[in-house]
Simulated assay, not measured.
Amino acid sequence: MITDPIVPVCPRCGTPIGHQSRFCPTCGASLASATANRATTDCGRCGSPNAGDSSYCRWCGAGLDPQAVPPRPQAYPPAPYGWPGQYPQRKSSMGVVLAIVAIAVVVVIVLAMFFVIATAPTQTGRSGTGDGEFSWRFEGRTYELQTNISYDVYKQYRDDGIQRYAYTVDEALQMCGSYVTPRSVIISDVATKLDDLSMGYSDLRRVSLVLSFVQNIEYVEDSVSVAEDEYWRYPVETLYDEVGDCEDKAFLFASLMEAMGYDAVILLYDGHAAAGVACEGATGTFYELDASEYFYCETTAVGWSVGDIPDEYGSAYIAQVG
């Protein structure tokens, strides 16, 4: 049996007994000699009670007998307070400060990135590949056309510094000619491919094929695609981004028509733009200018034939672009 060396035990049965007990509570043996020999000595260093015959404190190792040989020094300094082995942990505030600073820096960077992304103009469509693949249906047949526009060329058009919005009708009529670009190498290439796709077609059928090609380019308002109330695109930009609104698609259609040898104009309305083309065999709504008939072409949505016009549009301002 392992017993506390401070607590006396019965010399007969070994039962632990109190210091003031005179008889063993288990066997009834007299305890006078046991308690007499179990006096305690308090340690002068830590104050812990020790058996009277102990030479060293059982808690801190301090000598209790001045004549005793000192114990071998410990490898670590004695605990300055508390029970043996309980050392206060050094708490450094510098680590906490550095952690808080690091977290704050990360939060600031994330918020800054979010702000830049949220406020940057959104360019819907491709970004830098230059390869566009268009596929659309016309008269029950699927047509396909590929474009290759480098980002450098696209950027030249996008960043040329031209005014991107007309504030008056007169200003708009003057600006339209700058946005219809039949002599662009890229527009000429696309026009040639459309010519090849429509080889043997009548004028009306060829014009209708080109109109369906432009109609199938996704219509997206400027407020969504570039985060601007109004932003006029060059035809090359519309082909590259593969999106555009009414004037963007009208500029593209008029450019292709001019590049393919047809006379075209831009038709301006209050809040809308469309194109007109002089085409033999066309019927429907047309606008007359300099003895030529320009048939209305709605470029914003699929299903509108040459000469079909929405009911809400009547008289128009005509911008010559050829």
Rank of each mutant, 00 (worst) to 15 (best):
A301Y: 13
T124A: 12
A278Q: 05
T283I: 09
G261V: 06
W59S: 09
T192Q: 15
D42Q: 10
Q89G: 02
L111D: 12
V265E: 04
Y151V: 06
V236H: 02
Y269A: 07
W304E: 03
A120R: 12
A282D: 08
D229L: 05
M1H: 15
C279P: 01
N148C: 11
N50G: 02
S30V: 08
R58I: 12
E288S: 15
I100F: 12
Q67V: 08
D159S: 11
V110M: 14
G28M: 02
A275F: 04
V106I: 14
P77A: 15
A99R: 09
N216R: 07
T299I: 03
W59E: 10
V220P: 00
V169P: 01
A62M: 04
Y219W: 14
G85A: 05
V207K: 04
Y219S: 02
A166V: 06
V7L: 15
F295N: 00
Y296F: 15
S178I: 08
G161N: 11
D196Q: 15
A34P: 10
G322F: 12
G95E: 07
Q89Y: 05
D263W: 06
E237I: 02
F115Y: 13
G95R: 12
S198C: 09
L31S: 07
E247N: 09
T283E: 12
Q74W: 09
T299E: 06
L204E: 06
V214S: 01
V220C: 03
A259E: 06
Y81H: 12
I266A: 01
G244Q: 01
I266D: 00
V190K: 01
I109R: 15
D170H: 12
G130Y: 07
V210E: 00
Y76K: 05
I187G: 05
A99N: 09
A319D: 01
R205A: 13
P11S: 06
